[in-house]
Computed example of a mutant assay.
Amino acid sequence: MSLFLGTHQNRLDVKGRVSVPAIFRAALRKEHIKENNSLIFRPSHKMSCIEGWPLSVFSELTNSLSTLDLFSEEHDDIATTLYAEAWPLDLDREGRILLPDILKEHANLTDAVTFMGLGAIFQIWEPTAATERCKTARQKVQQKNLSITPQTHKKRIET
């Protein structure tokens, strides 16, 4: 799977268009988007940013809804959160997307935006908020002494 890496700043034009960073477009071409240029954009339900999802990754996430009763309150709440404000957007020939007003308002975007790679997805932030988010995340990781161990480096215990 291709990864979205790095932090990149771009300008939001007066029409609400922004260029997706070239490194992100390359990752999309490599793995996720073959014939079309669709991405799913949605407001984060945790932070004041926009999440960008390749359709294949978004589909994997939403497949887990099938484990819930279709008519349950939990299903309805999660489906509403995932789908009601989700926008499928296509990249134009210049690699730009046109962000709907509801998404720009959610992330407080005006003239500059920051794209942050998060591996399988990416986020779009107001630049000052993005800087603060990175700082806060780094502090939390240090305070909680968080780390991960790659699967290939785990020792097998045989009994």
Rank of each mutant, 00 (worst) to 15 (best):
N37I: 01
L109S: 02
K104V: 01
E85T: 12
E51Q: 01
D111S: 14
V113I: 12
P88A: 14
E74T: 15
I33D: 15
K30W: 12
I102N: 13
L99C: 09
S59I: 05
F41M: 09
A84K: 07
L68W: 03
S66F: 09
K104I: 01
R96K: 10
K34Q: 15
L39R: 08
L61C: 04
E105W: 02
T81E: 07
L103E: 05
A86H: 04
R25G: 06
I50V: 03
F58V: 03
E60A: 06
L109T: 02
A27D: 06
G95R: 02
E60D: 10
V57N: 12
N37F: 08
I50H: 00
R25F: 06
N63G: 09
D101S: 10
E51K: 00
F41H: 06
S44K: 07
S64G: 08
P88K: 14
H32C: 11
N63P: 01
S56Q: 09
C49M: 03
H106Y: 00
I102P: 08
L103D: 04
A79C: 07
T67F: 08
L70D: 08
A79V: 05
H75G: 04
K104L: 01
D111W: 07
A86R: 01
E85N: 13
E74Q: 15
N36E: 10
N36C: 05
E73D: 11
E94I: 04
L91C: 12
L103C: 07
T110G: 06
P54Y: 06
G52M: 02
D90L: 14
A112H: 09
K46T: 09
G52S: 06
V57L: 11
S64K: 12
L39E: 07
E74L: 13
D90Y: 13
S66N: 11
E73R: 12
L55D: 08
F71V: 09
L89P: 10
L39S: 06
P54D: 05
V57E: 14
T114E: 01
A112I: 07
F41G: 03
